[in-house]
Design a protein around this nucleic acid. Structure first.
Lengths: 132, 132
DNA sequence: CCCTTTAGTGATAATGGTTCTCATGAAGAT
DNA sequence: ATCTTCATGAGAACCATTATCACTAAAGGG
């Protein structure tokens, strides 16, 4: 443990499994669902580890985290760069969207009101064509 | 009980107390906080009733409901009409905002992707001038 | 004013997602 | 190989929210 310590998190089987599970699908899934999916596919992993790993991946911006309307946390691996989502309330299908002028608008509104360090939450929920 | 029944909810002491409590303040507060505040101010009221009443008031659009970043539901009485919020992450101070072109933009994005019955969630979190 | 009907109330239990605990296991360094 | 330290995971703890259900009290007719 030197002062020039650059050690990241340890590479474990569990961390790889969670990361792989996130890579395989394109919909938001809750930690519970991801845990169940991993167990079903034969990976032995604890629920606490799934929660921890997802939180860390989100912290590192490797995956995105949103709140479902009923308050649960849901995760999804996304393209890099900032963007938002259009989510089907029925089947969970997700489309990434990038409001062109939105970021600038948000910053302007914020500064007009004296706010700084702005973070925003924007998600659209609806019904996709298949579910309508 | 005729067929032309237009009876709304009954006027009870508890419902009045919750509604009054929401009228007195301008910040988002959780159901737990509102319950504690009512108890502290001498109103005897059950927690379940607070939850029920808040849910009903929100359903009737008399108050707004958002999710805090940690998943809790928070309520606030707002001006009528659709709008969003700019919320101080530190002190909870709230500013109502009304993105002029936002609704139209959201509908357009949705229909471009075949989505219908769009609902959206937009909140800005930051630090107000006093807390910076 | 009294009675009946029925929605509202509230103490408490149940639920369920998330976090904590801590003994055990494994990654990485020496 | 050994040692240090972080990661893991089973289960408990936590906590917001919802359900239960016996009791209370609005509303409205008599």
């Amino acid at each position: 443990m030197t002062s020039t310590d650059t050690a990241g998190p340890r590479r474990t089987r569990q961390r790889a499994a969670v990361s792989a599970a996130m890579g395989r699908n394109g919909e938001f899934r809750t930690a519970q669902e991801i845990h169940a999916a991993l167990r079903d596919s034969g990976d032995s992993i604890g629920l606490a580890t799934v929660y921890r790993t997802l939180a860390q991946l989100a912290e590192a911006h490797e995956i995105d985290c949103i709140r479902t309307p009923d308050g649960q946390a849901a995760y999804r691996r996304c393209s890099s760069g900032h963007h938002h989502h259009l989510i089907c309330r029925n089947c969970g299908r997700t489309v990434e969207i990038s409001p062109p002028a939105f970021e600038a608008w948000a910053d302007q509104i914020a500064s007009e009101n004296g706010f700084t360090q702005i973070d925003h939450e924007l998600e659209l929920f609806g019904r996709c064509a298949a579910c309508s």
